[in-house]
Amino acid sequence: MSDQATFNQPRTGASIALRVLLWAVLIVFAIWFLLPAYVVVGTSLKGLEEIRGGSLLALPHELNFSSWRHAWSEACIGVNCTGLEPYFWNSVGMAIPSVIISTLLGALTGYSLTKFKFKGANLVFALILFGCFVPFQVVILPMAVTLGKIGITNTVYGLILVHSVYGMAFTTLFFRNYYVTIPDELVRAATIDGAGFFTIFRRIILPLSPPIIVVSVIWQFTQIWNDFLFGASFTTGGAQPIMVAMNNLVNTTTGVKQYNVDMAAALITAAPTIFVYIIAGRYFVRGLTAGSVKG
C-alpha cells in the first residue's frame, strides 16, 4: 500500500474537497457498473403492464417471480417451448467434462514443459501459447467439417472436444507459469530419492497446485459457460448450450415481446458464473491477470 504517497494528508479544506471528489467519481462509476444489474433484476420482477406503464428505473411494485419460472420452464426458444432448463443442463454437461479435461492436460503439459526441459520445449510452449490468441474465426470452418467427419456435430461431445482443445492452450499457460515458480531442486531431489515422472507429479507437484487448479477451473468454466461462437456454430435446436438458447429466446420475434422474461432468462443464464465470481472472486482476478503476466 502506498505509504506517504496518498492524498491522505492533514485535513485541510483542499484535501477534504479532493476526498469528496474522489468518492463522487468512485460512486458515479459504481452506479454505471451496477445499472445493468439493477435494470435486469428489476425488469425481471415486474409484470408486462408495469414495464410498459412505469419507468425503467422504478422499483417493482411487488416481487413477482413468475417471469423467472416462465423463462426456466415455459418460454419458447424457436419452436420449442421448453424454457431454458434443458439448455442449462446442456451447458452443464458440456462445461464440466471440458473443464476437467483441459485442466488435467494443462497441468501435465505445464509440468513436463517446466520441470523436464527437453530439447524444443520452449518452441512447443511458444506454439501452444499462440493457440491462446488465434481468433477462433479461423478454425470454426475446418472444425465444423471435422466434427461432421467424426459424426459428433450438434452433440455435446463435439462441444466438449472443441472447448477441451482450445481451453488447453490457456490451462497450459496457467500451469506453466505457476510451475516455473516451484524450484527445480524439488524435482531433482525426488528423482534422486527414486521417484519417477508420475510419482513426482502426484506426490510432490500436485499437492502444491490447488491455487492454480482453482484459477484454471474458474477461468475455464467461465469461458466455456459464456461461449457463444462455438455453440452457435456447431449446434442447433435442442443441443444448444444455454448462451445460444438465451440469445434465441430474446430474439424470438413471434408474439408479444416479454421483456421481463428476457431479463429473467439473462439472469438465469448469468447466474452460474456470477455465483462463481462471488464465492471465488480472488482467484478470478488472478486468472484474468495470469494471461498478461507471463513467467
Binding site: F29, A30, F33, L34, L35, P36, A37, V39, V40, T43, L56, T222, W225, N226, D227, F228, M243, M246, N247, V250, Y259, D262, M263, A266, T269, A270, T273, I274, V276, Y277, G281, F284, V285, L288
Partner: peptide, 20 residues
C-alpha cells in the same frame, strides 16, 4: 462491483444494454 462484468458473457451484457 467494478469487476463483476468480467464474469458475465458478452451476450448477457449485450442483452442488458440493449434493453437499457
Amino acid at each position: 462491483i467494478y469487476l463483476y462484468p468480467m464474469a458475465i458473457s458478452f451476450i448477457i451484457t449485450g442483452t442488458a444494454w440493449k434493453w437499457i
